[in-house]
Amino acid sequence: MEEVNSLAKKLKAHLPLHQARITFMSPFILALLRSRSTNLYRVAEEFQTKADSESSYRRIKRFFADYDYRFEQLGELILSCLDMERFTLCMDRTNWKHGSKDVNYLVVSIAWQGASIPIVWECLDKKGGNSNTDKRIAVMERVLKLIPADRIDNLLADREFIGHEWFEWLRQNKLSCRLRVKSDNVVEHEGKKIAIGRLCRGARFNQTVTWYTKKKVSGVPLYIAARRTLEGLLIVVATEKPDSMIEDYAKRWGIETLFGNLKSRGFDMESTHMTNLDRMDKLMRLLTIAVVWFLLVGHWHHGDADQLPLNKHYRPAKSLFRLGLDMLRRVLKNSCSKNDQITFLDLLNVLSRT
Rank of each mutant, 00 (worst) to 15 (best):
P118H: 00
I147D: 01
R159F: 11
K135T: 15
V107A: 03
L89F: 07
R136S: 08
W96A: 09
R159L: 07
V103Q: 05
L155S: 01
I119L: 15
N130D: 09
L170W: 01
Q113F: 00
L124A: 05
Y105M: 06
F167K: 03
V108Q: 08
H98E: 12
D150A: 04
L175C: 06
I137E: 10
W112S: 03
A115P: 02
R178S: 08
I110T: 09
C90V: 13
G129H: 12
V181K: 01
G99S: 05
S109P: 08
G129C: 13
F167S: 04
I110W: 05
V143Q: 01
A115Y: 04
M91T: 10
I119N: 01
A111K: 05
D125E: 15
C177V: 09
A138T: 12
N173F: 03
P118K: 00
L175F: 06
P118F: 05
K174L: 09
A157V: 02
A157Q: 07
L124S: 02
A149M: 09
L170S: 00
Q172Y: 12
V107M: 11
S100Y: 11
N130K: 11
T94M: 05
A149H: 14
G163E: 04
V120P: 07
Y105P: 03
M140P: 03
G99A: 03
L146E: 07
C177H: 14
T94P: 05
Q172M: 13
T94A: 07
C177T: 10
G129R: 14
N130Y: 09
R136L: 03
Q113N: 12
T94R: 00
L89H: 02
L155R: 04
I152G: 05
F167P: 00
Y105A: 00
K127C: 08
L156K: 05
N132S: 03
I147A: 04
S116V: 05
A138W: 06
E160M: 08
R159K: 13
G129T: 14
N132D: 15
S109E: 00
I162A: 02
S100M: 11
L144G: 09
W169C: 00
A115L: 09
K101Q: 14
D150H: 11
